[in-house]
Amino acid sequence: MLSRRRFLVAGGAAAAVPTPTWADLGKPAFLAAAREADGDFALFGLDDTGALTFRVPLPQRGHAAAAHPHRAEAVAFARRPGTFALVIDCASGQVLHRLSAPEGRHFYGHGVFIDDGRILATTENDFATGDGRIGFWDVRAGYARLDEIPSGGIGPHEIIRLSDDTLVVANGGIRTHPDSGREKLNIDTIRPNLTYIRAGQVIETVELSDPKLSIRHIAAHPDGTIAMGLQSQRDPDAPVALLAVHRRGRLLRTFGAEMSGVCRGYVGSVAWAGTGRRIAITAPRGNRAAILTDDTFETLHRPDICGVAMTRSGLAFTDGTGGVLTDHGARKHPVAWDNHLVALAV
C-alpha cells in the first residue's frame, strides 16, 4: 500500500539535479504523438497556436503520454498490450529511462504524475487474473517500481489526478490477454466503472446503468467533476450514451444518445473546456467532435478527429490528417496525430 509516508521517503531519495523544464523548451502547451509521412513515429510539443515546438523520435506507435509537471520529461506509453514505456527528455530527445512492466503485467497506455511529480502512476493488467492494477514508480530513483494496488475493476485505461492527488481511474471493464492481443474476452459480462482512489484506498466507485458502455477516457473539471467518454460494446447503430458526467457523492448523468449512431458508439477522447462548463468528446469514427454546453451538443466536423485537450481559454483538437484546431485558429502538419492530445499545466 502506498502511504503518505512512502511518498515522502520516495521524494527524499535523490539529490536535486538541474534538469530542463518546460519553459526551456519554448513553453509547449501540449504533447501529442504522431505518425510522420515516412512512416516513423515521434512525440511532438505544440504551442498554444498549434505550432510545433519540439520533436523527439519514438521507436513505435504510442498511445498516450504523461507529462511531468515541472521537468521537461514525458512518459510515452506503448499501445496496449505493450510492456514498456519510455521516459523521454524532451529537450535532448534522449530516452532517460525505460520502464518495463513487471512479470505478469502489461501497460494499458495511460499514466499520470502525482505527488508534485515524484510518483508516476500507470494503469496495468494482471493478465493471469484479469484484475486491473495501478503501478507506482519512483521518479527520483530513476523510475524504480515502488508498489502497486488494485485499480478497482477490469481493464483500467485512462488514469487522472484531482488537485488533492485523488486518483480517478476509468476501469473499462474489458478483459484481454496478451496471448490473444486485443481480443475482448468478457463482452457478455463486462462491468465497467469509475473508481476514485485516495492514499491507496478506493473511496468511491460508480457504474453506468448500461454495463455495455466501456468507460475508457476521462477528464476532470477543476471542481472535481469527471467527464467520461464511452465506447459502446453494442451494435454501432444502437442509441447509447456517449458521455457520462459524475461528481463524488452525486448522481451520474449521461448524454449524447441522439448522436451515437453517427458517432458509431465510439468516443476517442474527452476534455473539459478551460472556461465555462463545456465538455468536448471526439468521435473519430463519425469524423466529428461534439461540444456539450448545458444540454446541447454543437458539432465540429474534422476527419479522423481524436485528440482533444483543455486550453486556458477553451479547447484544442488534433486529427489523423494532421489538423490542429486551437483558440488561435487552425493549422495543418504533414503527420497523422495519434489518439490523444495532452495538455501541459496551464
Binding site: 498511445h63 475508457r216 479522423d304 486529427d319 489523423g320 497523422a336 496525430w337
Partner: peptide
C-alpha cells in the same frame, strides 16, 4: 488519403 489512423485504432 490514409483513412482511419484513429478511427480504426479501437482504444
Amino acid at each position: 488519403v490514409s483513412a482511419g489512423f484513429n478511427s480504426a485504432d479501437g482504444d
